[in-house]
Design a protein around this nucleic acid. Structure first.
Lengths: 210, 210, 210, 210
DNA sequence: CGATAAACGAGACGGTACGTCCCGTCTTTGC
DNA sequence: GCAAAGACGGGACGTACCGTCTCGTTTATCG
């Protein structure tokens, strides 16, 4: 038994989708997540409410897709083109410490950028409470990035830059955990210097045993 | 310059306050934060809505106080009595690694306990979006704990268990960052084994340089 | 210059309108006007509150329309059909006294009928305080009736049954004034005998001068 | 078994009573009856709410007493002194028509005076809906006046100015009914000319037959 | 003349209803 | 023939007052 009312996605209006993404991101940025309403998005996008309810199950889902689209667009603009993901791998110059510094500094910059901060924060918060949405957030946004860390750490292990037998899924959290902590909880400022220090402490912790 | 309409807190009904705390925590635990309403709390507590609005500015503020009260009660029950905070200091047996394991395992247990998880998660999420509430969350709930880590790390530095010149406010994030990350984002299970591994990696990273 | 947010009345739900009329009249009859609430009407009508606020500015306005509808329905049932107002003219048998007795007795019966009394009284009272509503009450409910009196009195003047030069807009108040006085203020019982006496005194007062 | 909590009226604060009267009349005049609240009266009078609830059962009762007090004060100022009611009798110059013109013109003036209009209208309206209050309104405010009309009409009957056997309780309504009608329902302006015409028509109606 | 009890101001309390904002569904209409 | 427009039943918001109930503080007899 299939879905009773599965909409025909081939007939979907691209123009409406774009307008909805733009409106959602703008409203979240301007007025905050909780004051952003589906009616508000529809109105700003010049779209009927039903057009939103037809394609997304919730406000959070709209924002999730809008943010993924934003990220994809940014990546396309930065990288070689659509679908090319090789560019995002963490560089491997042989110097683990400086490679990670580069990546963590970039992450800090992103977290400090208002364009990314507002929607990402809203999604993260919503995911903290709504486990299903949280799973999507992790899978679609976080996991791809974490995999890059794991890959780089495995390469480092092979090159003897970190101790053998190390669990890369845990090790990477020494880097992303502290940054995420400061970002979400705003305990202290998120700076390049902070990122560098985290890298220093963590890489030492993962170093081969003498 | 005082508030124009500050209610007289000496006339405040203790019975109502307790009932509101209980109702708020119960509802958040049972139905989740977003489905918890001020009307629902008032109704369950057998209290007029105005009694809530008179003393708290928002649903989040109610839950914050309720949770602080819960934590205070738990502390009082566990410790030697009210106001006695010495009990919460991280032990200093001379073995930093095992001292931290103990604390991080306890933290993992707390994060896995439904009684703490639901309200704490709700507050953390709300604080992620609302900076003012986030500041309160950090100041009243997180900061006291972080200070304990900083103290223990300073003692460790003095004892030569970690490298000299280390910044304790950053170093402690090697421990709490990863745990918080897994707790809030639910990337992978939060276990004692995980806590132990984090301690291992991080303590190595902070070890005196050879 | 049109209203900024005028709802589209062509999309209006006839079913809801009817249900609201019925609920409003029933509640006013059962519990009285001041204990009748918009929430109560909405609930009894199985309707959202907003559906009431969308189409009426106040409780009194709802009741006014409900009562007008009731009167229109009653008229339609009694008379030859919708829009036929000729039936309501005061009869002209040549005997002014008996013609007016007939009408005033019918008015007394109406004022004593619970179905009409409760809402009419509520509207009259509200109109006494709220001038705008009062104007509507007069224009839509009272004025049509007063015109019939004025017409009959003009015919009587032409037939020499009352003195020439008499002001019909004042003369009619000799009849409706006393009845309304007793109805609204409940000074003494409203009976057919009372109506007859009023007609006697008043017709004598308007009689041609000897 | 006596009343459980009858307050001791000998200890009653005269100052509070006066302040409450003033506040009630002022608020009804300024903002209208329905927007006048007991809290508002208490606040404006510098009085606790309980002081009002202790002595009056309802907002309408407060206003009733306040208005009676106002009328008593006005009477005292106008007449020879407190308790002297003889002054209010309708004059008997032997000319019924001109005696009544005098009184009805004075009544018209009162109805057109804002100071009397607002509270009297509010009380009348409330009395239209609340039968108990209406009875008080009639008994304390209206009835004394109506008795004066009845007395004058009886004197007129004795003097052969009106037909014998006339019912004064009905006859007086030919005068007060029309005036009250125009006052409460605002159908047409209330003027001296109107009062004169009513007197003319009505006195003719009551004239001796023959 | 000082004790004492009631009335007083103040206002917190459990409630009800207000009028508004959105929710998610359903219906109509205009392009 | 789709999608914008938006009316609908519903739920919660935050506010205003209701009438009741303490709180200290006058106040004003009586013991």
């Amino acid at each position: 038994m299939t879905e009773a009312k599965a909409p025909d996605s081939s007939r979907r209006s691209e123009r409406s989708r774009r307008a909805i993404y733009d409106a959602a991101l703008a409203l979240v940025g301007e007025t905050g997540y909780s004051r952003t309403t589906i009616e508000g998005i529809a109105s700003r996008a010049g779209v009927g409410k039903q057009t939103i309810y037809r394609w997304w199950p919730s406000k959070a889902a709209v924002l999730m897709e809008a943010f993924l689209d934003l990220a994809a667009q940014a990546a396309e603009a930065a990288g070689g083109g659509p679908g090319d993901t090789s560019e995002y791998a963490i560089p491997d110059t042989g110097d683990l410490r400086s490679d990670l510094r580069l990546v963590l500094r970039a992450t800090v910059d992103e977290m400090n950028s208002p364009v990314y901060d507002a929607p990402a924060r809203a999604l993260a918060a919503e995911g903290v409470i709504d486990a299903e949405l949280g799973a999507q957030f992790v899978e679609k946004l976080l996991e791809p990035q974490l995999r890059l860390y794991a890959d780089r750490l495995r390469a480092a292990e092979a090159a003897g830059q970190v101790r053998a037998g190390l669990d890369p899924r845990i090790a990477l959290e020494l880097f992303v955990g502290p940054l995420t902590h400061r970002w979400l909880l705003r305990t202290l400022p998120l700076t390049h210097a902070y990122a560098d220090t985290i890298v220093d402490y963590a890489v030492d912790g993962l170093a081969p045993r003498g």
